[in-house]
Nucleic acid binder design. Structure first.
Lengths: 153, 153
DNA sequence: CTAATATCAGGACAACTGATATAT
DNA sequence: CATATATCAGTTTTCCTGATATTA
């Protein structure tokens, strides 16, 4: 992959700095949208992440989700509770292990995601679509996979 | 640029979703570092953003910084206060307008940034350097400028 | 008894809103 | 007086830690 340097290259440091700055601004912008817009499509990043994971890897317990997301089980419980009241996720007790509650997407959620209704009303999607060329959208997508690799440690 | 569609493309929606998810995880990881590590290099994204802006555009008031960052003046005041106690930023009263306090980087901050000492001890920089090829770092940098364009509205 | 899961209660942090003082 | 800046105080959100019950 890369030379196993102990010290980051100046380039890496610069990218990291700019990325941090952009991160803060993006976070504020997203929250702004969540608060002002009454759109269902504007879920918190944590909630989105959980839905995505359930869709990709199937049903899971709250604890395993918390581990996967690098979050405490108690925090994940809050996220899951929100998704349950929104009707996007459903919990069924595991017949084999009474401690666990298996979480899965509801049909309503699948339909909702498939139709893309959520995303289309979403500020970030709209902005990406409006201000970036298709080529640039590809670049951004590639960068996101790079980010995911960093986060999977 | 792009076709002025009212509805985002499916691609844009997908990128937005993944980006949101990555955002949440990255945010948690960064905070973790800020808390555990006593490194000076680990500032909050807001603080980084302010330093970057002062370096690029020169001295500014807290209010103008707040406008530029899309933040409330009161919130910015907290950020600035933290930077002042860290000795990275200094406020001098505007001789022409007694209401304003002009903020500028201290020499210590410039030196600190120039040496890159801050960034080199930083988790994000280290990880980018260690887990991404130089080519991929370029891709990431390009994507960050795209993000900045989105945020400048 | 030990380990894993779920849940309740309280705390820290960074943003927010509202209100007030001061200077132009 | 009207406007802009700075600041004080309280609220919200999302994560955190600690403690406790339940079940395998």
């Amino acid at each position: 992959m890369n030379a196993p340097d102990k010290l980051p290259s100046p380039r890496a440091a610069a990218v990291a700095t700019e990325l941090r700055a952009a991160l803060g601004r993006l976070k504020r912008r997203l929250r702004e949208q969540v608060i002002t817009g009454a759109h269902v499509g504007d879920l918190t990043p944590s909630q989105i992440s959980v839905l995505l994971r359930l869709e990709k890897h199937g049903a899971a317990t709250a604890s395993s989700l918390a581990r996967a997301e690098g979050m405490r089980p108690q925090s994940m419980a809050t996220v899951v509770a929100a998704l349950e009241t929104a009707g996007l996720v459903r919990g069924t007790p595991d017949p084999d292990d009474g401690r666990q509650t298996l979480l899965s997407l509801t049909d309503a959620c699948r339909k909702w995601a498939k139709e893309g209704r959520a995303a289309k009303q979403d500020w970030l999607s709209r902005t990406i679509s409006a201000r970036l060329t298709v080529r640039e959208q590809d670049d951004l997508a590639k960068a996101v996979t790079l980010l995911q690799r960093l986060l999977d440690e």
